[in-house]
Design a protein around this nucleic acid. Structure first.
Length: 287
DNA sequence: CCACGGCCTGATTC
DNA sequence: AGAATCAGGCCGT
């Protein structure tokens, strides 16, 4: 077992970030967060100015490098703050949810996660994904902990639709099977999408079954470095209608286009913060 | 192009 | 308690 320190200059709130609806497999245990990155299990603990990383992998340099990318520590934070801070609502959210970060996750896992998220709840997505991992992923044992790796395209392609339904995927099981089959057969590494312009990458993703504009944008934003992606779900649609008269008066139905024109190339960050804002507000109202 | 119903299923609401 | 409704969409008509 190793313990290493991940240093960062700008705030990271683990609780906020890992439960913001970007990632679904982190497990909180007190103030520890346990997750699976590739084939390694890591436990994170907030130390204020840094994060302590406990892991069972021999190559700690590799883990640190992975985490630096995962939390996007090389983003130009000042530029992001300056660009987005011009909008009143986003500025408020940036302040209120300090430490909420965009993640860069594995594209394959993110793709399946957001296909699963369609007309579902975060709790259910977590449940389904954990089921997928336990049924079809490789078992990983680390000391006293045991988790499972996210199944590869091959592992999911081999599963029957019925087996996939057994973990609670419902009508999404067919999408998962078809996508896994296609990716496995063509031996595609989804990272290639990172080198494509946003529009082309989105178009490619939307060619897959079960992937429309919203899911495609989630995959692009949360795993492929496309910060101009702006996932529009019912919450965000509501936010824009309620808070942005300029949007309400719009002549186009293309919400994404409006958002990028309005928020700029970091529109995805704006979405992340606005989503957190509306979700927290609505939780508090129901209390 | 737009509008609409159907889709699995667990949780929440009435 | 049991039935309706909803939940971070997408697809076919």
């Amino acid at each position: 077992m190793n313990s290493v320190i991940l240093t960062h200059h700008n705030p990271i709130d683990l609780e906020l970030t890992l439960n913001s609806g970007q990632a679904f497999r982190w497990i909180r245990n007190g103030n520890l967060f346990e997750g699976v990155l590739g084939d390694s299990l890591v436990t994170l603990q907030d130390k204020g100015e840094s994060i302590e990383v406990i892991n069972w992998d021999s190559d700690t340099e590799c883990i640190l490098k992975h985490l630096r990318r995962y939390f996007r520590l090389d983003d130009r934070w000042e530029e992001i703050l300056e660009t987005l801070g011009r909008d009143m609502h986003v500025a408020e959210a940036l302040l209120r949810y300090q430490g909420l970060r965009l993640l860069k996750q594995d594209p394959w896992e993110t793709l399946i996660a957001f296909v699963t998220s369609s007309v579902s709840s975060i709790a259910k997505v977590s449940y389904c994904l954990e089921g997928l991992c336990q049924q079809f992923g490789r078992r990983l044992n680390f000391g006293t902990s045991a988790r499972c790796a996210f199944p590869t395209p091959y592992e999911l392609a081999r599963a029957s639709e019925k087996e996939l339904r057994s973990v609670g995927l419902g009508f999404r099981a067919r999408y998962v099977k078809e996508i896994a089959g296609y990716i496995a057969d063509s031996e595609i590494d989804l990272e290639f999408l990172q080198d494509l312009p946003y529009d082309n990458a989105k178009e490619w993703l939307m060619g897959l079954p079960g992937i429309g504009p919203k899911v495609a944008d989630c995959v692009l934003l949360y795993s492929l470095d496309k910060t101009e992606a702006f996932p529009v779900d019912r919450w965000i649609e509501r936010v824009l209608l309620n808070w942005y008269p300029a949007y309400k008066r719009r002549w186009t139905r293309d919400t994404h286009k409006w958002a990028v024109e309005y928020f700029g190339k970091y529109a995805g960050y704006a979405e992340l913060y606005l989503f957190q804002h509306i979700r927290t507000d609505s939780k508090q109202r129901n209390r």
